[in-house]
Structures are given as C-alpha cells and as structure tokens.
Design a protein around this nucleic acid. Structure first.
Length: 291
DNA sequence: AATTCCGCCAACCGCAGGTTC
DNA sequence: TGAACCTGCGGTTGGCGGAAT
C-alpha cells in the first residue's frame, strides 16, 4: 500500500479521524518550497491545529509534528527574522534567570521569536560564554555574572543606542525601575504574566535564595488581586537587598561599552552578548568563587 | 586552491500531559 | 476507565556555510 492509499483508507474510514501517523514513506529533512506552499496555503484556509489532519489534507508526506514545527518556526507570518535586538537579548537573560530552560514560556514574551530560536541563541551564545569563562552555565557564579555584569551593560547599551546617554555617577542601585528599557513584556519595570494559571515562578533553585544578589523582588499587583496573574520585578528598589545590591562595586558605569575594544580582544560595540564580554567578567567570576 | 574546523540553525526525537472515543 | 491518539516541550543532532589553516 503506498502513501496515498494509506491516506485515503485512513481518511475514508470512520475511525480515520484519529488515525495513527503513517510511518511508511514519510518525508524527513529539509522542506522544499512546494511543501512550504502546500502547508502555508492549507493553514491559511483552514487554520492551525489538527496537524496530522493538516499533513494529510494538504497532501504532505510529512508527520503532523513536522508540519507543526515547520509552521511555527518558519512559515508563520508574524515571525521576526534577523539578529536578536539588545532588548530581546536582555529579556532572554532576565527570563532565563526566572524560568530556566522553559523556552516556550520565554518565547511568549518575545513576539515573533520561536522557542527554538531562543533555545539556539542560548546554546550558541550564552553557553559559549560560559565555556569561555570556564564555568557551568547553570552555576550561581555564572548567573551572578549575568545579572550583575552583563545585564547592566545591556541596559546601558540600550540607553546609549536610544540616545539617552547620561553620564552615570552612581551605582545602578540608585536607578528607578521606571528608568528601565521598555521591552516586550515589560511595562515600567513590570514583567507581566498574562497567564493566571501559570504565575511567575520563583527564580531557579540553582540560585541560592539567600544570595545577597537576590535579583527579583516580587510583589502582587492589582491585576493579581483581580484574578489576572501578574508580578513585578524591580531592579534596585523595593524591599530587601535589591537587584543591584553587592553588584555596584563591580559595575563600571563610566565605561562606555559601545566604543572600546576590550582587553580580551573582543570587539565591542556590536549588538550582541559577546560584545559585552571583557576580562572584568572573569575577575567577577573569580571573586564569586572565592566567596 | 583545497582541506579542515567550527558555529549556527533547522529539524528530528523522545517524552509527558491532554483529549477523545 | 483505559487505550489510542494528538499536541507541545525540551534536548539533541546533522548539514550547511564561513573562517581558518
């Protein structure tokens, strides 16, 4: 029985609605333009969902899973293409601190970006840096470096690129939450969780709860009281040690990361995580390890 | 110019949880 | 109620292209 016969027999029978995926003659590997057109056209007419049915009805010799993945990661019209912006990179760092490897959750806060894309970004860029620093990407030291060194630099670069450079004379702990960059999912320093069934969890357990660098202070918002899940994280304000506590001494607000070439030879000034790396990070990590 | 190395990314795989019959 | 099926998620891998030798 060839593929089409299998399809027809499954489609025509009453039990076909839940027919198993056909394992014979299933195409794998890169998608062709014809396949893309078939899938896109079918979804355009019939909408998303029921991917096994989509695969059959569209005449694709692909599994439903493969169709879904292709649509979500490549064909969806609202996808964003190109390099991650500074805001997006900052947001990924922030959200990963909170949720760990929950890529789909993180992707919800980056419209147009897929979980796969974010996952790849993390693995290729962030884990590379962790390797460079000779530490585990999930270690407290690495997370603290992210929070206290790279993320402030991101904020600074975002400000600089927005033409809002103002020579800081104080540590970031003095900065109001309102001064944060406006990124997707962040409103006035608040990370809004629109899903009431899945409130923002506590930061990953790999970051010790008694860390002096405890990063996010969460407080219920009015929305939460009304049943709409929402939490705020505040940088350098609110109760407790605050986000930047213990970090300011490592912070070099006068260093303009947008202009220089660092001592490690990395060109600085590109919109990337790598551009924020310098020897200070290694020093910071060393201090963390000595604690 | 040829070969090797390496980074990036698209796509696959296995699993878990949800849904339907 | 349990089996079959579907969907979504996170981890992994293979291929491609550019850089390095």
């Amino acid at each position: 029985m060839d593929f089409d016969q299998v399809m027809r027999s499954q489609f025509d029978s009453p039990s076909s609605v839940r027919a198993q995926e056909v394992t014979t003659d299933v195409r794998k590997g890169p998608w062709t333009a014809e396949e893309d057109a078939l899938l896109a056209n079918h979804v355009k007419i019939h909408g998303e969902g029921r991917w096994n049915l989509v695969a059959r009805q569209a005449g694709l010799k692909r599994t439903g899973k493969s169709c879904r993945l292709r649509w979500l990661n490549y064909l969806r019209p609202d996808l964003r293409r190109g390099n991650m912006t500074l805001e997006e990179q900052l947001l990924i760092l922030e959200l990963h601190c909170r949720w760990g490897n929950r890529w789909s959750k993180i992707a919800q806060y980056l419209p147009g970006r897929t979980d796969n894309e974010i996952k790849n970004y993390w693995r290729t860029r962030v884990q590379k840096l962790a390797k460079h620093l000779k530490c585990d990407v999930n270690s407290k030291q690495f997370r603290d470096t992210m929070r206290c060194v790279w993320m402030p630099r991101f904020v600074e670069q975002i400000r600089a690129s927005a033409g809002q450079i103002r020579a800081p004379t104080q540590g970031p702990s003095d900065r109001p939450a309102e001064d944060l960059p406006q990124t997707h999912g962040i409103r006035s320093g608040c990370l809004v969780d629109d899903d009431p069934r899945d409130p923002l969890p506590e930061p990953s357990s790999s970051v010790s709860s008694n860390s002096s660098n405890a990063q996010f202070s969460s407080s219920p918002s009015p929305n939460q009281a009304s049943g709409i899940g929402s939490e705020c994280f505040e940088l350098g304000s609110g109760d407790g040690p605050g986000y930047w506590a213990g970090c300011s001494e490592w912070w070099r607000p006068g260093v303009d990361a947008g202009e220089q070439e660092d001592s490690s030879g990395c060109l600085v000034g590109e919109d990337s995580l790598e551009s924020l790396w310098n020897e200070e990070d290694a020093w910071f990590l060393q201090q963390q390890l000595l604690e």
